[in-house]
Structures are given as structure tokens and as C-alpha cells.
Computed example of a mutant assay.
Amino acid sequence: MARFEGRFSDASDLRIAVVVARFNDLITGKLLSGCLDCLSRHGIDTSETSSQLDIAWVPGSFELPLLAQTLAESERYEVVITLGAVIRGDTPHFDVVVAEASKGIATAARESGVPVIFGVLTTDTMQQALERAGIKSNLGWSYAMQALEMGSLMRALPG
């Protein structure tokens, strides 16, 4: 029996892209900070001159899948992290954006064969988003951990 797991000790040389939505940038900026902190503490060079990490900004969460797929298919990155925040309003716009972002991000991963981490907060209120982006905990850190684990796991698979 073979057993495959990601190992964080094997992830410090991964090439990573982070795609961040500008819409709700109060939230996504905090998610990005948590993400970069985690990556840095696990050996990823997060400096401005890094050859390991690139950050791309898109207008909103709806646009995350297209750029995530483009970057994943570029063969330059071993994992892509998407960061966004969609906060429920009084119209059905929330449902449309969340559905398309989640389907598109999943499709990007499946079609490219590169792990694409779904780091899009979907909350009912701004307070909930703030809590998940740093007041109580920063899920940006968790998304980075998922990226490190999946990048390492993909390397461990045969073939």
C-alpha cells in the first residue's frame, strides 16, 4: 500500500502564484498579509525580488478563475492561491459571484492539474469577513498552509 501526504519540510522551494481580488481590499489585503506571513515562515522567499512568488491583482472575485487558470497553465507555478471576499448584500449578486468563482476556481485546478487553493471568504456581514481576515484569526494563513501541503503532495505522487 502506498500512502501519499504533503510534507511542509519539502515545500520551501515551491513556485507559488497568489491571485488577489481588489474588491473588498480591506479584507483581501489582510488575507494576503496572513498568507505571506505563513509562506515566509515556511521558507518561501516573499521579498519584492523573489523568484519563488508572484502576486497578481484582479478587479474582483468573479475574475479570479480566469487568471488562476492562466497562471496554473503557464507551467511556471506549482500551486496557485486565490484570495477574495464576497459579502452578502440585498441582491442576488452574492450568489452569482460565489457560484461562478467557486466553480471557476475548481475548474482551473482540474483542467490545469495544478492545485488552485480556494481562498474566497463568503460571509453575510463585513464583521464576519473581518473576523476571518484577522480579528479572530487570519484564514490567509490557512490558505497558504493548504498551498504548501498540496504543492508538496503533488511532488510526492508517482509519475
Rank of each mutant, 00 (worst) to 15 (best):
S50T: 02
D25W: 11
S33R: 14
K30E: 14
T70H: 15
E63M: 11
E48H: 04
D25H: 15
S51V: 06
E73I: 04
Q69E: 11
E48C: 00
T49R: 14
L32P: 00
D37Q: 15
Q69M: 10
E78H: 07
Q52R: 01
L71W: 07
Y77T: 08
L26K: 14
R22V: 14
L32D: 07
L26C: 07
C38P: 00
D45A: 04
I55F: 06
S50A: 00
E73L: 12
R76D: 09
L26W: 11
Y77W: 07
E75V: 13
S51H: 09
G43S: 00
D54H: 13
E75P: 07
V58F: 11
N24H: 13
F62W: 15
I27N: 03
E73C: 12
K30F: 12
L66W: 09
L31V: 04
I55Y: 02
S50W: 00
F23N: 06
D37F: 13
A68E: 12
K30N: 14
K30W: 10
S50I: 03
G60T: 13
I55H: 04
Q52N: 04
L64I: 05
E78I: 07
L71C: 07
R41M: 08
V79L: 03
I55R: 03
S50E: 00
L66T: 10
R76E: 13
G29R: 11
C38G: 01
S33C: 09
L31A: 06
C38R: 12
G29T: 10
H42R: 04
V58T: 08
S40P: 02
I27V: 12
S61K: 04
I44S: 00
V79Q: 06
S47Y: 02
D25N: 14
